[in-house]
Design a protein around this nucleic acid. Structure first.
Lengths: 178, 178
DNA sequence: AGAATCATGTAAGGGGTTACATGATTCG
DNA sequence: CGAATCATGTAACCCCTTACATGATTCT
């Protein structure tokens, strides 16, 4: 999760297809990623402020007659680049896998973005390599507790591998855009 | 992870067999749980202060001649009860499983405490039930993305189940204390 | 002589949570 | 007529991280 948190990528991702204001981002995330993911209102506005300071997005105040005025956020080129790079990079730490990878697949799915199959494939490659590393560490281990921990990691990676090859690959292919 | 964080239980667990001072706790954790787990010095001292305020432990200043004086921490009855209860309760949220369950097994192992087999068995029961719940939700789901998420959860729970039945149960039986 | 060990902290700051504030409009 | 929706925030607090502070002793 190089430097930026998942929360930041999710907010950037909410703006990749079209500008939105804070309340709209909240609604978008609440209606789509809601099962996987949540932000509180206060955190969202704080985050938007920070991302604006970092020039990943810019804002425009729009006054409305019958409604409170709203601050419409647009991604800058930097913001777009950061999000797009992230979307095509596989997850490097197994502990982040669930949230990070699922979120990427969500955006591929929701925006019909190309590259999902390639991401799934490179993620499969990464997990295979990592699994072999842990397997060899486990074989060398003499401490029974550490071995137990290694075996757990191997089991989880085997599960991820199975899911990637079966479900995720099928899902990504079904998007029919690669 | 009812209320208290894993960090708190780990610190309480470091004191269950004998009183220790802060530096000693740090060394103990660094030499045993180090692969699974870390605390920074500053966080440890802050946490000890908080646990003392909550009366889960008490401290005694011991002056030494050739060394800086040390604050020796002892668990109170409340502290002991909170740790012991936690040790025998299965983990309720899959997201906490890895850290929480592994830590419990570590303490069972390190202190040769009885009850490991019972914990593994009740954890197996819990995960089976939870897996069936998710499976039925998954079958009802029509949204392909949500289905994908459900299938991931099922895959992970199946992995946990396999590891519990194979590795963890064997490990717990090997402790030869139940 | 310099590094590591023993021993306990403070200070600043980051990121997240919960609670609170405001105020018009539109739906049931 | 009250509840939900639209819209944006502030304030306080919690936990954790990183950096800094101190100072004697013992190992290399």
């Amino acid at each position: 999760m190089e430097g930026r948190s998942l929360t930041e990528y999710v907010v950037l991702g909410s703006l990749i297809a079209a500008p939105r204001h804070g309340y709209e981002i909240k609604q978008f995330l609440g209606s789509t990623l809601e099962s996987t993911w949540r932000v509180s209102t206060s955190q969202l506005y704080a985050l938007l402020k920070r991302l604006k300071q970092e020039r990943l997005l810019q804002s425009n105040l729009e006054t409305q007659e019958t409604r409170p005025s709203k601050r419409v956020l647009t991604l800058t080129d930097d913001g777009k680049a950061i999000f797009t790079d992230w979307m095509h990079r596989p997850t490097m730490h197994v502990r982040d896998f669930r949230m990070e990878f699922m979120t990427k697949l969500f955006f591929f799915f929701h925006y019909s973005m190309p590259g999902a199959v390639a991401l799934v494939e490179s993620q499969i490659g990464f997990i295979k390599t990592r699994m072999e590393e842990i397997r060899s560490q486990s074989e060398k281990s003499t401490d029974p507790f550490k071995t137990l921990v290694f075996e757990y990691k191997i089991q989880m990676m085997a599960g991820i591998h199975a899911w990637l090859s079966k479900n995720a690959l099928f899902f990504a292919r079904g998007l029919n855009i690669d």
